[in-house]
Computed example of a mutant assay.
Amino acid sequence: MRVRSVKDITIKNVIPRAALPGGEVVIEYSGWDLAGTSQPEVRFGDFSAQVTMASNDHIIAKVPEPSSETGTSELIVTRNGHTSRPFPYEVGKKLASNLHPVANPAIDSEGNTYATYSGRRGQKTPVSIYKITPRAAVTPFATDIMNATGLAFSLTGDLFVSSRFEGNVYRVSPSGHTETFIEGMGIATGIAFDRDGNLYVGDRSGSIFKINAGKEIFVFATLEPSIAAYHLAFGFDDYLYVNGPTTSSFDSIYRISPSGEVDRFFTGLGRPQGLAFDIEGGLYTVASYRGRRGIFRFREPKKPELIVAGLSLVGLAFDLNENLMVVDSGSVYRVRLGITGKPLP
């Protein structure tokens, strides 16, 4: 077929604004009418992407795995010998691998990131928690916690860790010393602190426990059980937000009032995991929604917006430098979004 016109290829936009390996991005372009000609080539820096669909105004491509080794890169499109100008695009940079996170990472006051090597249920791993510095130096931080799961920092700067195997929550000092804080939390998964220093623990069997400073335990709320883990975060409204995948493909983010009343913030997500808030009150979660997978932002309760494309993601947390730290089932990534996170708790 004869090409009716060929102009310079211009990339107009890429949706979403950032991605991780395996994530699908939509490249909007202009400058040619090439129906019936060869498949375009898409490259993120030096790495070629898999093109899953191409039309005369947009292309869908998967971010190649090696691109995360270098992070932020330039995207180009080539077709029939014509190449676009480079389009700056944010691919998250891999900071650490060979981990096993099952919930949000945690960030300390110095900007270090903490992530677990949780292991299979009942598996004792040599290291339970790793510390990753902003310069991507990875060191063991805590050991001897069976199936380390949820992570959260207290107001005093100690790291608290749940064990889904033992049902305990541990307190880990800044030097890495570990002690048992509370026992009997069922299948203890996600944890979070409120502004008064009360600790909340998600027992994925269906309960959210509240533990006060005197270590008194209350059943704060009951929810539908999760097949994996509950993920917890407090909003500026002092409501506790909770999600976790169930047997349904139409899951909810729950919103629990300070008195323990439960309602649904949003329903319709597939396998929601991880929760975080930005400084403006936007809520971020890992999920699938209407065929797209990655991290979605809710500026309004009924309007999820894909902000980072990615696969097999399990948790997220904002650092101190307007980056989103994201974990999948084996690695930690830094995604430069230029968004300030909500101060914790």
Rank of each mutant, 00 (worst) to 15 (best):
G45E: 02
V172I: 07
E74W: 08
I15G: 04
R135V: 15
F181H: 14
P245E: 00
M146Q: 14
Q123N: 09
Y29V: 12
R334F: 09
Q39M: 15
E41C: 08
G202D: 05
Y230V: 01
S312K: 12
A188D: 00
G330S: 10
Y254A: 02
I129P: 13
A287N: 01
E65R: 02
I132V: 15
P304K: 09
V219W: 10
F318K: 06
N243H: 06
A213C: 11
T247R: 10
P245S: 03
E261L: 07
T70K: 12
I339S: 10
D203F: 04
S329E: 15
V172C: 04
R79A: 10
G260M: 08
P86A: 00
G260Q: 15
R17Y: 08
T189K: 12
A228I: 11
P66L: 01
K124H: 10
N243D: 05
D203P: 06
V219D: 11
G291T: 00
S109Q: 11
E90Q: 03
F209Q: 07
G341Q: 04
E261S: 14
I227Q: 09
E300G: 07
G282W: 05
S162P: 04
S84D: 05
I217W: 06
A103S: 11
Y254P: 12
G36E: 08
G315D: 11
D278N: 06
A19I: 01
S226L: 08
A317C: 05
Q123T: 08
L240W: 08
P140L: 07
R120M: 11
D319A: 03
F220D: 10
G81L: 03
E216W: 11
D33M: 12
T52N: 09
D278I: 01
N98D: 14
L199S: 04
